[in-house]
Design a binder for these strands. Structure first.
Lengths: 309, 309
DNA sequence: TCCTTATTTTGTCCAAGACATATGAAAACG
DNA sequence: CGTTTTCATATGTCTTGGACAAAATAAGGA
């Protein structure tokens, strides 16, 4: 059977088959082929068996396109812009501000590959701010500005990997250090298949635990049917799902709606994350959380409602 | 654009379109269609536009098939068995021996969904044994026996997710609690694209740090080209890659050989993990680590060689 | 300004064929 | 007899071009 090719074989030539491009850009194979047919981009060269081989510049342009489309641009309007024009569209999208100094100093340490001091700076920020402010201010800020840096090519893939690992270390350390369950609802926390971003999930878990809720964290990519089965097993009151911007808003809302139909009425369904901040309305019985404040309000509301009974 | 249908319309009929089945079973749309063409299963009914609508029983049988195929069965041989026969095949995979009592008691807590006591049992084991023994005995044992339980169908998907999350919490907590760099080599630790298993990587990181080496952990799935670029940036002495049994031995050895050609002679390449325990020999200049003891010997050897200079 | 209704855009699904690679069995070797 | 090599089969992924529904936009009307 054909598998994702060993990218090492052509690492220097930077050739990607359609499966690798799907994985790296999040654009489906069908979409890639239909864009080629309709718009003439991307137009990859072929190997000896007429299979598509995408170049690294194509891949970069596709990533920019994906980003702009997520932001609201239409594919047909921008697909024939040059990579430079797309990059300019992105940078012109938001007024170019620089990150606040406390964020900038941490990012500088990452860019200088100073692992030790990077780790220490994160730990110090956590100690100084406490878990709640650390998550909602420092980590959220770092995510945003590191995303910006990645878009403009100022940060390497391996730097981002290192960042993700260290944030996970810190957040999980804080999570396990917290005392046992609190007074709040039992919240099952996970993401649906295809959603691989772990940091958002850990941030939510940290906030929930800091607020005294009991969290059952299943990590990323739990199939819907297994979420359904886990709800009675762990006797949870709320199922919370996280959707990063890597997933389309439509897919996120559809997943939430499907889950809603599978769970008993007594179990609440909450959804949040980058894919949903601009969503208008969700299926009935699904609560959208567009910020960490929304999350805290939702917790408080749950407590009020369940004390009354 | 077509999306996952609002299943609330047909919630009781439990109909899934091909995208939902792909998401929940991990079988690609192409695979589902070609199975239907070749083997006659699954044979979903169609909606008014001739699009496939899979039933819940089909979905359940597909998940059993996926499980058995992962374990080594061939699709063509088992695809026309009934769901009951498949379930029996799975349960007949019972382990020959039972786990030692200290492992069994922890697994029992997981099977009873007792999150609090499960967490506490892990923490207690860590305290009692120290990081090194905890990793090489308890965590290694848990991985093995939970794998067995998964194969025989005695453990749910969500239980395994919860296990993975908690082990990560504990290991990362231990990792960050360690004092800064030690005397040993700087080791870059990661896995190649396609290798998603994080726990093995974290176990290695814990052992390295306990032994006083400085670890640059990049998490899973770092493209080879990015590993190459990270080596000078972080000035590492050793690149260590982890390969779980989910990857074939051939693929693991090929990846190591490829990396070896891309790195300068002065940087060592180490490989380990389930895929390589039975490997005979690797490419020249690649060190195979078949056990945690091998890892510790390799560290000691490096230190001896680099003190002499 | 808001709601309803056309029109265009855009992503997903389909079919059937082709083919490379994983797997397992048979053959040749040490 | 154990080990590697060779071959055949099984199996998953890629191909093309057509079709069409849902989303997004534009146009019309209260």
């Amino acid at each position: 059977m054909k598998t994702i090719p060993d990218s090492s074989i052509d690492a220097h030539a930077a050739c990607y088959n359609i499966a690798a491009v799907e994985r790296d850009t999040g654009l489906s194979k069908d979409t890639l082929r239909v864009w080629e047919r309709r718009y003439g981009f991307p137009k990859p060269r072929r190997d000896q068996h007429d299979e598509r081989l995408y170049s690294l510049p194509d891949l970069e342009k596709l990533r920019l396109l994906r980003l702009l489309i997520d932001y609201g641009h239409r594919p047909g309007k921008i697909i024939n812009c040059s990579t430079a024009e797309l990059a300019q569209l992105i940078s012109s999208r938001a007024p170019i501000k620089s990150p606040p100094p406390e964020i900038a100093s941490i990012i500088d340490l990452l860019l200088q590959h100073d692992v030790e001091n990077f780790r220490n700076a994160l730990l110090q920020a956590l100690m100084k701010q406490g878990l709640l402010r650390f998550v909602t201010e420092t980590v959220a800020g770092l995510n945003h500005w590191i995303g910006e840096a990645w878009l403009s090519g100022r940060i390497a893939v391996f730097d981002e990997h290192l960042y993700s690992e260290h944030i996970q270390n810190i957040l999980r350390n804080a999570i396990i250090a917290q005392p046992g369950r609190g007074s709040g609802p039992r919240v099952l926390l996970t993401s649906l298949p295809g959603e691989k971003h772990r940091i958002g999930l850990l941030m939510v878990e940290a906030v929930l635990i800091a607020e005294g809720a009991a969290c059952v964290a299943l990590g990323t990519e739990t199939p819907i049917i297994d979420i359904k089965n886990a709800v009675p097993a762990y006797r949870v009151d709320v199922v919370a799902l996280s959707f990063s911007s890597a997933i389309t808003q439509t897919a996120a809302l559809a997943g939430l709606a499907e889950l809603r139909t599978l769970l008993p009425e007594t179990v609440e369904v909450w959804g949040g994350g980058g894919a949903l901040v601009r969503a208008r309305k969700a299926a009935p019985g699904v609560l959208l959380l567009r910020s960490f404040d929304d999350l805290r309000y939702a917790l408080e509301r749950w407590r009020v409602e369940h004390v009354a009974h």
